[in-house]
Nucleic acid binder design. Sequence first.
DNA 1: TGCCAGGCCCTCTTTAGGGCCTT
Length: 202
Amino acid sequence: MTRVAVIDFETTGMSPLQGDRATEIGVVLMEGEQVVDRWHSLMNAGVRIPYFIESLTGISNAMVQAAPPAAQVMAEAARFVGDTPMAAHNAAFDRRFWQAELALAGQAAPQPFACTLLLSRRLYPQAASHRLGALAQWHALPASGPAHRALADAETAAALLARIRHDLRRQHGVADVHHGLLLQLQTHPRHRLQSVIERHLA
DNA sequence: TGCCAGGCCCTCTTTAGGGCCTT
């Protein structure tokens, strides 16, 4: 059974290269379409959270100041994930922070990332919006808690990934949706979706 | 001083521009 760690970060901004840091991490472990474990933590990276971000996430400076150090949290996250392949909604964003925060903690980040945003754009071009919350509504996914909190958003992304796996099985005839197939699908143009699947099935 | 993300995707494209998505 394919095991995937679905991750979501709350951060102080968009880019670790600009000095932005993670404030919260949530990880949901899936086997196939089932959630088998979950883990989350606030983290203190020693930087101030802008007011706009506080308002967006509800994560305050006082909350992160009371949280464990970022390096300690990331070491625990790395142990929890191990070498499990990963997924996230707009994975380019979470992968940047995963790699940057682990690098600051002296840890490697070798895991490949599947992206539910890229996969949704290919599988559901008729959706009006591919934001995580909009897709959750569009698919009628189960509610997972307040948006813009790491574990709730990781749960929603995990439910979306389960839906993607389900639709690949039921609508496209893929018996076993390997992580490698997801990585292939997300890197090909939308119009080549079916040919990639057919090559995989051959 | 002034600027400030990065990458994918579409199209009135490819010698480019702008919208979307993540916080």
